[in-house]
Design a protein around this nucleic acid. Sequence first.
RNA 1: GGCGGGGUAGCUCAGCUGGUCAGAGCGGCGGAAUCAUAAUCCGUAGGUCGCCGGUUCGAUCCCGGCCCCCGCUACCA
Length: 518
Amino acid sequence: MADKPRYYVTTAIAYPNGPPHIGHAYEAIATDAIARFMRLDGYDVLFLTGTDEHGIKMLQTATKEKLSPQQLVERNVPLFMKMVERLNCSNDDFIRTTEERHHRASIGIWQRMEAAGDIYVGKYSGWYSVRDEAYYDEDETRLNEQSERVGPQGTPVEWVEEESYFFRLSAYQQKLLDLYERHPDFVLPKERLNEVSAFVKGGLQDLSISRTTFDWGVKVPGNAKHVMYVWVDALTNYITAVGYPDVDSAQFRRYWPADLHVIGKDIVRFHAVYWPAFLMSAGIEVPRRVFSHGFLFNRGEKMSKSVGNVVDPFALADAFGVDQMRYFFLREVPFGQDGNYSLEAIVNRINADLANDLGNLAQRSLTMIARQLDGVLPKPGAFSDADKALLAMADSMIVKAREAMRTQQLHQVLNAVWAVVAEANRYFAGEAPWALAKSDPGRQGTVLYVTAEAIRQVGILAQPFMPTAAAKLLDLLAVPLAERQFAMLGQGRRIAAGTALPAPSPVFPRYVESEGSA
RNA sequence: GGCGGGGUAGCUCAGCUGGUCAGAGCGGCGGAAUCAUAAUCCGUAGGUCGCCGGUUCGAUCCCGGCCCCCGCUACCA
C-alpha cells in the first residue's frame, strides 16, 4: 500500500472568540465525511482542522471578559477540540496558530515573500472597523443615527494611522486570472469562482499585512513592533501542518499542495485570492481546490444571539445522536448551498430515512434470518431478474458516489445510496419473503441474501457519513473489518453466504418527541 | 448601477443543447400487506412551470420587456 495516492483536506481554522456553533460543526462534519470517504476509497488521507487564535478580536473579547488573550484561548479552544471529537471527526491533526511550529511557518513564508520583493513598508491610515477587521475609505463610511461613524456593514469604525507592511497583491492580478483560467475547478461551486474572478478583474490593491496597534499575533521577523495581519497568519496554517518551512521534509513533499480546502462562503476571497498570491510569491505550489459551503439557517433565519436561535452543536448531538445529525446536514443541504434546518425537518429525515427506510429494512430482514434460518446467512439460488436488478443498482452506487465526490457533492452521494435503500424496500415488499417461508424456502433464502447484500453495500458507503451506525450495521451482517473498504463494493463483490450472524438489534432508533430537546 | 444566479405541485426542489417536460421526495388522502423500529408497498396531488409580448408546426426550457428574491461588486449621498 506504499503507493496509495495521497489526499490532503482541511477545514478552515475556527476563530475561538466564542464557543463553537453549528456552522463550525457543519464544516467539520462535511470535511470529515470527505476525509473518511477518501480513506475508504484507498487514499492516504491527511485531514487537518484547528483554531485561528490571534488577532485583535481575540484581544478585545479577552479584555471584555477580563482575561488575557492566552487565558481566553485556553478556555475556548478545548471546546473546539471537544466538538470535533464529539462529532466523531477523524482529523489527523489539530493545529493552533499559537503553537511554536506555526510561528515558525508564518515567519518562514513571510521571509520568502519578502525575499521575492513582494513586501514593503508603507503607511496606512484610514477608517478601521475592528469587527470587520478591515479598513475602509472615508467615502465608504457614513454617520449612523447615533452620529457614530460606521462602515458599509454598519459596524463602528475608528481612525487609525500606522506604519504597515504591504504585500504586493497588485502584481498578482494576471497570475491569479491565469490560475482560474487553467483550473476552472479551483473554486467550487462554480458561481463562487465567477465572483472571485470578477473581483480580481476589477483590479487588486496592495494588501496591508501587518499591525502595530496590538501585539497578539505572530511577530514580523526583524521588526517586533509589528504583528502579522491575522489572515497571513491564519492561511499559513495549511502549510504549517505539513512541516513548512521545511519544504524538504517527507511530510511536506508528501502532502503539499493540499487537495482541498473546505471553507465557508464568507472567506472565499481570502482563500481564492490572497492565499494563492502569497504562495506564488513564496514559491510554493497553490492548493488544488477551494470548496465553499453555504450557511445554515434556523427556520430561514440567520442564527444570532439576539434572535435567540443559536443552536449548540453539543445539544444537537445529544438530542438526536451524532450519526443522525451528520446524516441530516449532509443529506438535507446540497453541499455548497445554504441550508435550512428545523426540529421537524431533522425528525422527519432521521425517522423516514434512517429508522424507517434503512433501519427497519435491516431489522425485518435480519430478524427473519435469525428466527427462520437459525441466524445463518442463506446461500442464494439462481438469481431472478428482480434479484439481478437490485444487485445491479447496488453495484452502481460506488460509481455514482465517486462521480459525485469528484466535485464534493456529498448530498448526491447520499441520494444515490438512499435510492438503493428505497429500491430494496420495494424489492422486499414485492418478493414478500415472509410468505415464501412455507411456499418456497429456497427462494426465501435467495431474497434474504440479496437483501443482505444490498444492505452490505449501503452500509459500507454510509460509513463516511455515519461512522458508528454504519459499523454497527456491518457488524450485524458479520462483514469483517478488513472488508469494509470501497474496494469491496460493486460487481463481483458479494457478502459471504453461510456466515452465522449476530442477533439483530435496531441500528437507528426512531426519534420520539420528549420534553426539552434542541 | 454593473455582473451572476434564481422565481415549477402545501413544503424542499429535479428538469442538459426547444416536441411523453409537466416531474421527485416529504406532507395530505385512499388502498394493500402484516415479516419488521405502528415500520413497508401501491395509487392519488389536476400546479396559468413569476408577468407580458415575440420567434416557431410546437416553448417551462429560445429572444425582448417588466416584477420580485439572492450573491458578488460599484457608486451616489
